[in-house]
Design a protein around this nucleic acid. Structure first.
Lengths: 330, 330
DNA sequence: TCAGGTCGTTTAATCGTGTAAATAGATAAG
DNA sequence: CTTATCTATTTACACGATTAAACGACCTGA
């Protein structure tokens, strides 16, 4: 019965007794054919188990129905949540998703973009370092994740508002002496989070110490030393991963949160809610971030001329067990 | 200068003053041409910034240079490590990787396979539920991850040996009364881990209680109750995620590891080493799992007739702070 | 009755590569 | 000098789909 290779549009046409063009019209939902022929063709196609050859379609139309998703790494709790959302939404629109990690290196980002281009993606969702240089002309449309990017559509949480929220909550809990583990300020989101915090804290809180750290769950010696000095009642962290690192240092030093010092994170990644960690944090809607980015990209693919848009998603406070009201002065 | 669209093999041919066939021969490394022409063509191709149109190549050859990677989820610490390794190795061989999650549902697995087929993957690396039925004839070659699978190449850790290792170490630490959080036994790896443990423990350890649990960081009430009964000196867990759930329950119940009870994991996922968690566990080489699987798949794509192979990787004991020598009897 | 318009379908060209088969050019053999 | 044997290159078609343009059948109104 089966000829070995899978049936083509011509096989369907032959069996249905129509031309291959008609089959193509039917299968592309351009309603150019009579209802009867339409039904006939669909029935035959299903019977033969026909499925469109994507390569041929891509060759002819220049569209591959594949999008890329560029993230710094997958071995961090936040990014897979985003990737999953992107993929889900893309699939709903008939796109497959090529997830690829740039390893945090801005040089590799450009290589990764070329790799994706080589594999013919129609566009990509990407978390890019601000000094990433996009090729001119761009190889494909890109939607920037997590930060505005000149000339690109973008989707990101309201980091600034999140920073403010942190400060307000800290103040509400009575904290006046705070240490800060901020990210390096070349990353837009780290910068804005800090800025929001600093602006809202101004005059009401003393920023006793501040250390710039990498966004990984290990702290540099300088940060460890600062924490051990016990000069603050709260440590405000640029993200949850760093907050977990802070909790680790506390534990190693025989201290604990929130008994000795409160710890505040940012992101609300999945693990933040584990009882073992139980982190108070600012929640950014990771899944929505991903799906909105996918939407934006797909709409861009359908209309390249549409003006650039910047979607800002709201953040919320999630109060858990790593923070507490500051103890009354003795 | 640029005609808008990217240069084709014909453009290269014209500029180099040869036929398009010659260019094709050069670029495919079939050494059918004189060294001078070879060099000339390569130079021109580079000058024009030529890059092969993958869709056209795929249409002609039937190979897309894309592989799939099917995993139950990405929002678990273990799988991204595997995915990253697969991707890295695949890229080294010129393949892109379509990572896709099957959401743990065996029914969805078959759908995911069809999705991948639709997007024209040449093959896939997959972590499959044992009762997954592969299409006949198969849509593409698959390498099974984490467990042997009839008819497929496979790569997996030596779960049975890991189970034995757990038991031996527990015995060495003096534990005689052990509770077990085992996975559901329809999953091969869960079954083998348990079997190894039980075989090695036979006659030397009393298995006081055992609960089958899902491989997620939350425990069913039954398991929570068992833990709170305080009848054992060690809890042996089917994997690290479950072990973390156990640690959480301990904390919620005012107990701690290893003071009140030792906790033993399996996998050695990245977070197991965080000071906050600090889990004794059996390490399976996740990255190697991924890269070996990719290798196997690619070699299969090059030779469909090659006999099926089953690669078993060794596991090792990683001793951390969640286990301790059993306290001497009062 | 015939020009003109609609509508549904087919014809045929095209996308960029790969590759079998044809060809030309050089060399060797008889 | 002819013929055979290579080898380097080109010619020409196929892969499977999309789509503009051509076509034919039918209807309509003057």
């Amino acid at each position: 019965m089966s000829r070995g290779r899978s049936p083509t549009i011509k096989d369907v046409a032959k069996v249905a007794g129509v031309s291959s063009a008609t089959v193509s019209y039917v299968l592309n939902d351009l309603n150019k054919v009579t209802p009867e022929v339409d039904a006939l063709v669909r029935r035959v196609a299903k019977e033969l188990g026909y499925s469109r050859n994507n390569a041929a379609r891509a060759l002819k139309t220049g569209r591959n129905n594949i999008i890329g998703c560029i993230l710094p790494t997958l071995t961090s709790p936040v990014f897979p949540e985003i990737a999953q959302a992107v993929q889900l939404r893309a699939e709903a629109h008939g796109y497959a998703t090529l997830v690829i990690d740039s390893g945090n290196a801005p040089m590799r980002e450009e290589k990764v973009v070329r790799t994706l281009a080589k594999h013919g993606v129609d566009g990509a969702v990407a978390l890019l370092h601000p000094n990433f240089k996009l090729a001119d002309p761009p190889l494909f449309p890109i939607v920037s994740l997590d930060a505005k990017f000149p000339g690109l559509d973008s989707v990101h949480a309201d980091h600034y508002a999140g920073g403010r929220l942190m400060a307000e909550h800290a103040i509400a809990l009575g904290h006046r002496c705070i240490g800060m583990l901020s990210g390096f300020q070349d990353l837009t989101s780290s910068f804005e989070r800090r800025q929001g915090f600093v602006d809202a804290a101004a005059g009401r809180v003393e920023l006793v110490w501040e250390v710039n750290v990498q966004l990984v769950p290990q702290l540099p010696p300088e940060a460890v030393a600062a924490i051990r000095r016990r000069e603050v009642t709260m440590i405000a962290c640029v993200n949850d991963l760093v907050a977990i690192a802070a909790l680790s240092v506390l534990k190693d030093s025989g201290m604990s949160a929130p008994g000795d010092v409160s710890v505040f994170g940012f992101d609300d990644m999945q693990w933040a809610s584990w009882p073992l960690i139980d982190l108070t944090t600012i929640r950014q809607p990771l899944a929505e971030l991903g799906s909105r980015a996918a939407d934006l990209l797909i709409s861009r693919l359908d209309d390249r001329q549409r003006p650039v848009v910047d979607v800002v998603l709201p953040v919320t406070l999630v109060e858990r067990g790593s923070t507490a009201r500051v103890p009354p002065l003795p």
